[in-house]
Amino acid sequence: MAKKLSFLLLIIVMTVAGTVVSMATGDSTNVTNDYSEDMELPEDAVINKGEPNKEEYAHEAVLDEYGTLFCNKESGSKVTILDEIKINRDTKNENIQDYIITGMITEGFELEDNDVVVLMVFVEKENGYVILGKPVEGSMLLFSRVVMPFTGENNPNNIRLVVFPKNSYKVLKPDENLQITDIEVIVKKQKANVLEKIKDSLINTVDSLKQLVNVQ
């Protein structure tokens, strides 16, 4: 009888122990924190608080600093960093204003190891320039998708390409390491088919009638 009872007791103890272990959720953070707080650091230890050791490149900062140079109508440059520039319609998309700008870094232009070239695309708008799309980088080829804001033959897009080596961003000089190239792009309006023309003219007629009714 004693044997049976001790066996039953053992079963119960084991079950309880198992349940406790399985329900326990380890809070490792606390353990680590406790340990690190108590831990003594050597005097010469350097604590990295996550701050960058050197100033990092940022497109926004470059735009802030050189905005007036990039967007000055009179700006130009003699240096050629980006060559074979091609501006093609992105025919994959239905939107006639979607374009792809590509180019290759000029053969003779020497880029430092691990350096890349930055391409910023601007368009002339209201007597100034506004940036088109995101600036892109490349070590040999460059590729940028943009949406041209203007359509029609009388409404050309005056595109300005600004190109420079990324590592030289602190000192950009038009005749040394900064290329500014202006290109005119005309986005031709799609010829509407006959049905669309009829539909448009009907809409115009209805609008005109509505306006007439409103005036009276």
């Binding site: 074979e84 093609n88 792809i100 590729f143």
Partner: peptide, 23 residues
């Protein structure tokens, strides 16, 4: 996935029909 002719974008080939994806 549509394909584009490489030569229309980059002068790194002489093959007029070489297709690549820009998608």
């Amino acid at each position: 996935i549509p394909m584009n002719r490489l030569i229309a974008f980059y002068a790194i080939t002489e093959e007029k029909e070489l297709l690549i994806s820009l998608s």
